[in-house]
Design a protein around this nucleic acid. Structure first.
Lengths: 199, 199
DNA sequence: CGTTCCATGTAATAAGTTACATGATTAA
DNA sequence: TTAATCATGTAACTTATTACATGGAACG
């Protein structure tokens, strides 16, 4: 699916500004859709020019003015058509796994760093999860998707925590702790919550 | 990580032809690295021109001739440097999850189709897993990575199979079976094995 | 006799990324 | 007063994708 199709789909549930789309993306889609958002305004303008959207200027007094975009009939048809006919692509590119598979060419410190960084990312994802879980207005479908992500995150953490020692050659007699333990990771995800998200 | 960096890394363990890289990719990296491979030959030529590789022509009698690429000192340094200094990006784009979260705009048949297609993809991934598991010459690091993928695939199948009914509004009194059951999926992954991979 | 495997490339295009650029308001 | 939030855009560039293009050998 192309970014423009996705934008049209996001507008199926009502008009949004570019900024709204950005926020929505950052909060709910970041974990399974990877796009840079700098071009979102350009995309909206293009879609507008092509007749998929109509744009309404909204003047605000204590805020910068904004533009609300809404689907035209054509836009709505296109969005639905994408939902029905696109064959979904699963596009995963995990530098982490790629690099780890070359661990024989790296020093142990790098391996530890990579694991810890990844656990950190997963921890942040859990934070977003908990924020989402605490909101109402979620459709059963969104709940389904969130549950899937939750399961994936937890499976990965579980695997990393139980297996990461396999990556270290010199386990024995190594007094310095290499890794955070599972409790610390999960705690980081709940307690530091908001702070973490802002990093 | 860029494709060219990855190619350099793949060559760390010995010279390969473009075709070798393709094969290696298709067998072991497909599941967590998403790239189109048409440009692999172009990339090799570019890397050669830039002094990262040296190329040896190998004439074969009962096969098309091929070109074996090997790292130069510069190429090796660049590969190692990428492994040590790149900050790994996790790039997931799951059209499946995106589309599913808009299920309220789709007919039930489409939802079923999406779930079944996804289970099919996962099934194929399990086939690749089983082929990989049966090979020797795997470093502990590769085993680690495979284990991770295995865990991820199984977690997703588990989730889909136990929760997919949540997506169907009219569960009651629906006689026609909507989905394959878990045993059928896992069986498809082992029995049909090779045949599936070729689709 | 048809399909898969081995093996390599080119050219045009589309898409997305990075970096640049601005500016008022509000909460800490 | 400093950082974060709200809010929108442009231009140059890099990258990757799609489609095209070929051809012998082996296998079933």
């Amino acid at each position: 699916m192309k970014v423009k199709d996705m934008i049209l789909c996001l507008l199926l549930d009502g008009p949004l500004s570019g900024y709204d789309i950005k926020k929505k993306y950052e909060m709910t889609f970041t974990d399974y859709i990877d796009v840079a958002l700098n071009n979102i305004y350009t995309a909206l303008i293009d879609l507008d020019d092509a007749g998929f959207l109509e744009c309404e200027r909204v003047d605000q007094n204590s805020r910068p003015n904004k533009k609300l975009y809404n689907l035209t009939a054509l836009g709505r048809r296109t969005a639905i058509s994408a939902l029905l006919h696109v064959e979904p692509r699963q596009q995963i590119t995990s530098d982490f796994l790629f690099i780890i598979s070359f661990a024989s060419h790296m020093p142990q410190t790098r391996v530890k760093q990579l694991i810890n960084q990844r656990l950190n990312q997963l921890s942040k994802m859990l934070v977003r999860q908990s924020v989402r879980f605490s909101s109402d207005e979620r459709t059963p479908y969104e709940i389904f998707v969130e549950g899937m992500i939750d399961a994936a995150i937890k499976a990965e953490i579980e695997y990393l925590v139980t297996r990461r020692d396999d990556l270290l050659e010199s386990k024995k007699g190594n007094k310095t702790r290499a890794f955070l333990n599972k409790e610390e990771i999960l705690e980081a995800a709940t307690v530091k919550g908001k702070r973490l998200l802002k990093q």
